[in-house]
């Protein structure tokens, strides 16, 4: 019984190792060089939005402050159209 179990285990392992070699590489797997190029493509995709924020928070805070300032200034300044309407 023990020998049969060990033989079965060995058979399973050998089968799992050899079937890719016997079948060539599987159809679901692209060859290594293709994978590399797709990984290079992936590199561009991996540029996740906000990914860099953690390293720039102090700058980001200043940037936000600047933006708020600009919006306030814009609100405070009467637009040309508004002036015309007033005339």
């Amino acid at each position: 019984m023990t020998i049969a179990v060990i033989a079965l285990l060995t058979l399973l392992v050998v089968a799992s190792l050899t079937y890719p070699l016997l079948l060539g590489y599987s159809v679901t797997e692209p060859p290594a060089d293709k994978v590399e190029s797709s990984s290079a493509l992936g590199k561009a995709e991996m540029e996740v939005p906000n990914a860099d924020q953690e390293t720039q928070a102090p700058d980001l805070a200043a940037q936000v402050e600047e933006e708020v300032k600009v919006i306030r200034e814009r609100r405070a300044r009467p637009s040309a159209g508004h002036n015309r309407g007033g005339k």
Binding site: V13, S16, L17, T18, P20, A32, D33
Partner: peptide, 24 residues
């Protein structure tokens, strides 16, 4: 060997082998 000889089937065989190792 798969990497040196550019034969992906050897790499796939190694992947299967490591999964089998985990099972063992």
């Amino acid at each position: 060997w798969g990497a040196r000889s550019r034969r992906p089937q050897w790499i796939e065989s190694a992947e299967n082998g490591l999964v089998a190792t985990a099972g063992l």
